[in-house]
């Protein structure tokens, strides 16, 4: 039913509260998130630990149920689907996780791990013919992620972190999904192999027309990977724009502080930049501030910021949305542009 202009994934007013520690207390992990993911794009989700990135990913996968809101994927409202209907949608909706050590079952052979979704979703016939078909399909998938077909008979512990991440990617691709959620896919890897995995993800996206939701706290990786970036703070999206627009013209004070804190591996560029170091502690999602949730750390907060939560709306540039009453203007001098 979906036309080409329609978003592949669409969230409206999505909210998730977890039960907190004390009786009656709640943790507001995701708060009023609305966003669209267009077919073929990479939408980046960036923000500090605990801001709700993984929870948002889990909500989309329906691994946890939203407290409120609507999540539409390919035109269907996921929250209204039965478990059975959800199972069929899950073919199109896959995930690559951060920790390639924890996400592969140590007792299964690589071939079994990659073939598992094929079997669960009855993509291969039962019996010997099915097993042969699965092996062949697994060999193709392993080849696509740069691994030799012969690794099928080996176990996860025999592989390095980067190789395990390739295996995880092969498994995610087994059902030819439309959307892949990548939750910090390189942050557990050695620095020298992160680029291998990012290049691989980009190539697969090009070859297979994949759509990515790319979760990371690493801004360098974000700028490298994402077409558009959503900045999250305390469960809310505070800024959303095309990647280059966001990096060159950030408007939310929180985005500014994030960008200015991202280390640059170049001492000259480091010396030339101005850093906005936030004062104080990040508030707890169990007890978010009233009004703007960034209020307690915001260098330019005013009394009015304690009123309602600022909505995420376009400012000046169409498609560049900011949830702030007083968006920052002078951006250029805060993140130095250096070309080398």
């Amino acid at each position: 039913m979906s036309t080409r202009d329609e978003p592949l994934l669409s969230l409206r007013g999505v909210r998730k509260e977890f039960a907190g520690r004390g009786p009656g207390s709640t943790v507001l992990a995701v708060d009023d998130v609305s966003l669209d993911v267009r077919p073929g794009e990479t939408l980046g989700l960036v923000g500090e630990s605990g801001c709700g990135k993984t929870t948002l990913a889990r909500l989309i996968l329906r691994l946890v149920d939203a407290t409120a809101g609507e999540i539409r994927f390919g035109g269907r409202d996921l929250l209204k689907l039965s478990q059975r209907e959800m199972l069929s949608v899950r073919q199109d909706l896959q995930v690559v996780l951060q920790d390639p050590y924890a996400s592969l079952n140590p007792r299964m052979r690589i071939g079994e791990i990659v073939a598992e979704p094929l079997i669960t979703h009855h993509k291969v016939p039962r019996g010997r013919r099915g097993r042969a078909a699965a092996r062949e399909r697994v060999a193709e998938l392993l080849d696509a992620v740069g691994l030799d077909a012969s690794v099928q008979d080996r176990y996860p512990h025999e592989f390095s972190g980067g190789q395990r991440q390739r295996i995880g990617i092969a498994r995610a691709l087994a059902l030819e999904p439309k959307l892949v959620i990548c939750d910090e896919p390189t942050s557990a890897l050695d620095v020298s192999i992160q680029a291998q995995i990012t290049n691989l993800l980009r190539r697969l996206q090009r070859e297979r027309g994949l759509t990515y939701v790319y979760v990371s706290h690493d801004l360098s990786m974000m700028r490298q990977m994402a077409d558009r970036v959503a900045v999250m703070n305390l469960g809310r999206i505070v800024e959303l724009a095309d990647t280059e627009e966001l990096f060159t013209n950030p408007r939310h004070p929180y985005s500014h502080s994030l960008l200015s804190a991202a280390p640059i591996a170049d001492p000259k560029a480091e010396r030339a930049r101005r850093r906005i170091v936030l004062r104080g502690e990040a508030p707890s999602p169990a007890d978010p501030p009233s009004g703007c949730v960034f209020r307690t750390r915001c260098p330019v907060a005013r009394d009015e910021c304690d009123g309602t939560r600022p909505p995420l709306v376009d400012h000046d540039v169409p498609g560049h949305a900011v949830a702030c009453l007083y968006p920052v203007r002078a951006a250029a001098d805060l993140l130095n542009e250096t070309t080398s």
Partner: peptide, 18 residues
């Protein structure tokens, strides 16, 4: 390594192996 102060998009030049 990608840089936060340089536009992304180019194919990175990875180190092979582990």
């Amino acid at each position: 390594m990608p840089r936060p102060d340089v536009p992304g998009g180019a194919v990175l030049d990875p180190i092979r192996g582990a």
